[in-house]
Amino acid sequence: MNAIIQTNELTKTVKGKTIVKNVNLIVKKGEIYGLLGPNGAGKTTIMKMLTGLIIPTSGEIMLFGKKLAETSKEGLKRVGSIIEYPIFYDHLTAMENLRIHCEYLGFYDKRAMIQALDMVQLKGIGDKKVKDFSLGMKQRLGIARAAITKPELIVLDEPTNGLDPIGIKDMRDLIRTLNKEYGITFLLSSHILGEIEQVADRIGVIRNGQLADEVSLSDIRRQRTDYIELLTSNVQRSAFLLEHELQVSNLKIVKDNRIRIYDAGISAGQISKLLISQDIEIEEIQKHTSTLEDYFYHQIQGGDKVD
């Protein structure tokens, strides 16, 4: 396993309150890892510790196989980040901000700065002061800054905050491009499921400061079950007909009036046609897909992993 980030029992306590507790997180090289959790779950605190902004109360962070500590922050040269919201020296221009960032990292390449601005569609406004930027522009400039040195890891906390729908799509595309073309590993956080679902390879669910579960999106997609839900007053007879007339082998009677049919080859139309022909009243029939939302909801509510 080629772990870019590995934490061991990472814990952060502030004023006696434990915000992050015993988190053992592994982010592998080249993947897009999403931290998912409701507001206040501890996602930002984890990211702040991973980027050296705050010091863990206990536990260990390994970045690129080396321990990250106040006295050994060399690993951060290979990391780009935006935590909470992009922070800049507002009285300076976009280009001046990028230049200062690069110089702190011992990197200076004017062409790379121009390219970074191009990449986030901020071409030609490098001489504009950041205080005149909209939040969306600042967010994009933040991405440009995070990616300018082509780091091996980019940490983005709620990267689509403040972006309009087009900006959100652009951001998603940009993350995918940087991941695929430059092999940059991403650690993202969001409380919006759809966002994470569309870009992440793996997700870690954060609940009350703990890593409740880690799962790959492909696993969830595999687990994702489509089913048809039927509401009828005559459940027993309907189930009998479905089994014998349509050869349904995978169904479940959920409540007194509700049946779920999991067989992939059966359509709602076939079921309706059959039941109507047998004079069985259908109150409702609908196709359902269990999504990441179901999974996430289940995790946040404290349930076990979806089987």
Binding site: L53, E70, I83, F88, Y104, L105
Partner: peptide
């Protein structure tokens, strides 16, 4: 918060 930005650089 630009101080926090500086803390994120490889510098103690």
């Amino acid at each position: 918060k630009t101080m926090a930005l500086s803390f994120g650089y490889p510098l103690s």
